[in-house]
Amino acid sequence: MAAHILKGFQDEMEKEFFDMYIDATDRQQMEWDAALKIQRFWRGHAVRSSVIDMIIGAWTAQRWYRGHLGRVRFGNYQRDVTKKLRKQFFDAAAIVIQRYWRGYMSRKYKHSITARRRFIRASVIASERFAEDATFNVEYQTIQLEQKEREDRDVLFEKTIAGKHHLASTEVRPGVYNSPFAKVCGGTPAMNAVPVDEHLKNSFKTLGTLDVTSSNERAQYATDPRALQASSQYELPELARKNDALVHKLATFHERPFLTTTKGTSLNYRHFSHNLHTPYNAELMRSKEALKAAQQKKMAIHDRAFYNNVNKQSLFEDYVLPSQKLANGAY
């Protein structure tokens, strides 16, 4: 019985449950929609009520972040600008320093105005010294050439008159070179300021040393203004003789007066020997004197006159010896 009752109950319950289930299934969609609606409203409300905070929050975050970026950018920019400015400033300063320094170095070493001036002055002085030396050299050469010419001429003359002493004048008869008409015809022929006739007489060895012709005859050679041989000085033998006389006079006054006169003169004669030579050689001797003096002068001038200027380093401070260049690693 109980089971029967239970069974009926059970069926009822089952049926009830089944019905309820069907109901629930029928309403499920509606409930679902309702729930959705509620949720929608709620959510919308919830969002609507909090969105302003979110926006404000976002703004704040953005503000902060953008501020940060800006500050970084500004910092970079400022750094750049200062860097540029600083660079400009220092560049300008460096250029000034470099300019001065380069100018100084260049003036001191490369285009040294003092070195250049010194060099030019040295070269001009060297030129002048050279000119002096060279002029002297020319004179020296000319003297030598003239001397040689004269000697050649004398040799030729000697050769020509050799063995012609028969043409000389005698006491009775004038020679061909001592014509009485010579005075009219332009003068007596002469060689080295001595009449040819005298040369001829002189070459006549057996007569011994010839006595000098009388002073009257000399005057005849000397005073004739129309003499053809104007270049040879007729008064020269006369002058030479006077000179000899003077030398005699001077020679006798010796600085050692206690020596006997003869000894004194003989001593002093040695000093003046060339002046006491025969008048024929007077001119020759004088030119030899000149030559000797010229030679002495040449010796007095330094034989490497310009050599002290050759040192390049003393002229140009910037001149570097090749060996030094090598050491500096220039090559």
Binding site: F119, A122, S123, V124, I125, A126, S127, E128, R129, F130, A131, A134, F306, N309, V310, K312, L315
Partner: peptide, 15 residues
């Protein structure tokens, strides 16, 4: 050239 000049060569050449 400088060697010549420093030896007085220029004056000589000019002359």
């Amino acid at each position: 050239a400088q060697l010549i000049v420093s030896n007085g060569g220029v004056g000589a050449l000019v002359d």
